[in-house]
Design a protein around this nucleic acid. Structure first.
Lengths: 232, 232
DNA sequence: TGTACATCAGTGAACGCGCGTTCACTGATGTAC
DNA sequence: TGTACATCAGTGAACGCGCGTTCACTGATGTAC
């Protein structure tokens, strides 16, 4: 069988990989300034000084380019959150939680259009392929690990309730969480609330409502931490 | 001064009002099926059997039509929530809370594209005018009233904390809430978390994570009620 | 090392589409005397 | 009640734009002998 060529060998392959990356970079810039709806293959090609049809050597369609941007967006956000959480002392569960949540918010504020692409309205006519699923889960996994670590060390006491009927079977086990307590549901609550709070701030719904956004966000994440049982 | 003609008097005015409404209806249908990005004046005109330029007698631009749809969307959602909440017994604070939250979710599930227009990504190149502010607040006001009623009757005890530095000055007073407790921030938390949960379900982020969406939503709103101090 | 062939990248033109908006116009409806 | 004028609704053509995608092609790069 042909070995899967992980790194480009020939000069041609190297050039190809580099130009592919350049296309994605330019596309991301356009996305960042004009939003997903305004992203056009022709504009990207124009900026790269090539003819629009040439882009089709690299991406079979506009949707494939979009998918790439979505995957890279989830990965960029996920990595930012993972790095922030990893930088906090392992025993400081609340510190890890805040680091993760704060990194998500910071990334969103720094990349509003990318954030909107990931967590805003679904792009019309576009349906997310399999490749986006794993990257999309990275933030949730970080949050779950903080909780499961607390559970393992005894710092987190499982709240009453039973997730078995609510959560997808097997998922909680993979995350190191019991499925006969209310923890799973609470974690999903915290997860969706985190992005609810970020989205509300970013999309202006709390404009003229909240004046100190950072302080408010901090107290929101503090309460979400309490929801999932992290000790104060 | 010319009296503000509230109701159309002449035949011409009646026809005009009716056709304006028809345009909005068709536009809403298009929005509901294809999403905001695909909404075009020409398509609406086509469906009404008129020439595209004729629509300009009724709306000066596409954006004005969009604004109308946004305002009507907020009003429809707000009214659904208000009616549901009003149907619950006044003393049953938790019942009123659940009725309001459940109505918001139901409306969103029934009108996904309209919901995306209101709470999803901001429409590129479009900035919300003043007219959208008041309708956008209706749901939050319902939630606030449940809490302030509980506060007045003594059923809700103000949690510790101080909102004065976080919330917009004057706002909490208008809502009948004290600004020297943590209630305001908690209410915003509940508000954004409500739409975070709805958005996550609607946009598929909890696909393959939650299997019993309704039950999950119910327990989410139960916990949010506890966050704002409503008695179980 | 040199040649013959295969692979690939990029070109340029074209197809077919739809959009928002403007403008001069016709004909119908309303208003004032 | 009837006429003259003003207002308004709708028409049809046009402007100028940008898009995604296809296709036959040239020329350069890689490969096998």
């Amino acid at each position: 069988m042909t070995s899967p060529r992980s790194a480009p060998r020939t000069a041609r392959e190297r050039v190809r990989a580099q130009l592919t990356a350049e296309i994605v970079d330019v596309a991301r810039t356009h996305l960042a300034t004009a939003g997903a709806a305004a992203l056009s293959l022709r504009a990207v090609a124009r900026e790269l000084g090539m003819v629009s049809s040439a882009v089709y050597r690299y991406f079979p369609s506009r949707d494939d380019l979009l998918t790439r941007l979505i995957v890279e967006g989830y990965d960029a956000l996920g990595e930012a959150v993972e790095l922030a959480e990893a930088a906090a002392p392992r025993e400081d569960l609340l510190g890890r939680w805040h680091a993760a949540c704060g990194a998500a918010r910071s990334w969103a504020l720094a990349h509003p259009h990318e954030y909107a692409l990931l967590y805003g309205s679904p792009v019309p006519g576009y349906s997310a392929p399999q490749d986006t699923i794993a990257p999309a889960g990275r933030v949730a996994i970080v949050l779950a690990r903080v909780v499961s670590d607390g559970l393992a060390s005894g710092a987190v006491a499982p709240p009453p309730g039973d997730d078995a009927q609510v959560m997808a079977p097997g998922l909680l086990g993979e995350l190191g969480l019991p499925d006969d307590t209310g923890l799973g549901g609470r974690l999903v609550l915290a997860w969706s609330s985190l992005f609810g709070a970020i989205g509300f701030e970013l999309f202006g719904h709390t404009h003229n409502v909240v004046v100190a956004h950072e302080e408010h966000f901090r107290s929101v994440t503090t309460r979400l931490a309490a929801e999932v049982g992290l000790p104060a």
